[in-house]
Design a binder for these strands. Structure first.
Lengths: 210, 210
DNA sequence: CACTGACTGGAGCGATCACTACAGGGACGT
DNA sequence: ACGTCCCTGTAGTGATCGCTCCAGTCAGTG
């Protein structure tokens, strides 16, 4: 395994190995807990290779975040295409079930994101900035989806959709931490409950806006 | 300000200064982001003083967590004494409102706790272990409270109370992250909604157990 | 077969990390 | 007056941090 199978011109593979290893480490230990030494140890590649592929640690972690985000999106629902469900309550339930599945099946992105988002040093790392961007991007997608789900032409629908998207994200945060802090969760029923709660909130806010 | 007002025999005050400074730093930057140098800079005390009061960094952060927990409990509801509210739904709402107030008024404990809980290195720091204990302690208190709120003698009430306490905690986690990632929150109404959701879940689980 | 350009290997840089040794300094009891 | 004990100040320790330098290796190109 040492230096036998490693041939030349396989930079792309090395790059991926580095990203995957960094993701595994950073999703466990956070930004500061991730050291280049740990990455080189996990990949077998020397530090110089890491720095050939990435400018510095900050960029490595920013790209690692993007990498995990891309992988997460493969599992997560794309908010663009709606399933043809007539009943809004049902559609919301479907969405949240898919989201909860993505969180449980590919937890690294959400986990890393939470840690990057929580830690707040004075000079902000690019990785955290990138996460905030990605999160905002996701929220926009969720908001657009909500605007489609809400009855067309309702008064103040855009503002309601905005609030709902925020709430929606917070629910997923709570869901992640809850699910990953104990087994006994009955996740599907919980998601049903939450979905109905979100739906109720949507109705209430819409009534408010009118 | 330098060495003028600092008299002798004021070890206890120094200790508190160190704890407060460490809390402020650690709640912003997490375990690894907190360095002794930052603490000495913030307090004006040398490193040797820090190490006179605390055995090492790990113990410093463990005690800082306890310190913040104690301060948090001053604001948070004590789960022991119930207000004399007859309607369970109303009582749950009251509880969650108090909890959300504690989270918004003294966010350091919850914030630090989330970071300690998320970061997961192989050799576990005492601070994280201490947090897990404190969290378990809180959950036990919440569970006991639920057992009082649930109709006495209901079948499987203890198991339902256990699940509800877990859910309850997850809600508070999501609430924290949600509240601290944006302004436009209409917190009180949100808490009402969530409380009703929790209540609905309690009823459903109780029906299940029967 | 020489050359190029993409990568690797190893050695080592200064800075910062957690932590320590030790010499005081000042409020006390005696 | 003197010693004791609590705490501070200075000046370090070795280890690890992120990062760099640069020679060496090997596939592809002409």
């Amino acid at each position: 395994m040492r230096k036998t199978a490693r041939r030349h011109q396989q930079g792309e593979e090395s790059r991926l190995r580095i990203l995957a290893a960094t993701l595994a480490i950073a999703a466990e230990r956070g930004y500061d807990g991730t050291s280049i030494a740990l990455v080189t140890e996990a990949t077998g590649l020397p530090a110089s290779s890491v720095y050939w592929h990435f400018r510095n640690k900050d960029e490595l972690l920013a790209e690692t975040l993007e990498f995990s985000y891309r992988r997460w999106r493969e599992t997560a629902p794309t908010w663009q295409d709606r399933v043809g469900i007539a009943d809004p309550a049902e559609e919301i339930r479907d969405r949240l079930h898919r989201a909860s599945r993505a969180i449980t099946e590919r937890p690294e992105f959400w986990r890393l994101g939470l840690m990057l988002g929580l830690a707040n040093r004075p000079k902000e790392p690019a990785a955290r900035r990138r996460y905030i961007e990605v999160r905002a991007e996701t929220r926009t997608a969720i908001r657009d989806w909500w605007e489609q789900v809400l009855p067309a032409g309702a008064a103040g629908a855009d503002q309601v959709a905005d609030r709902l998207s925020r709430f929606h994200l917070a629910v997923m945060d709570g869901l992640y931490i809850g699910v990953h802090s104990g087994r006994d969760w009955d996740l599907d029923r919980l998601v049903d409950l939450i979905a109905d709660g979100v739906h109720a909130q949507a109705v209430a806010w819409l009534a408010d806006a009118a």
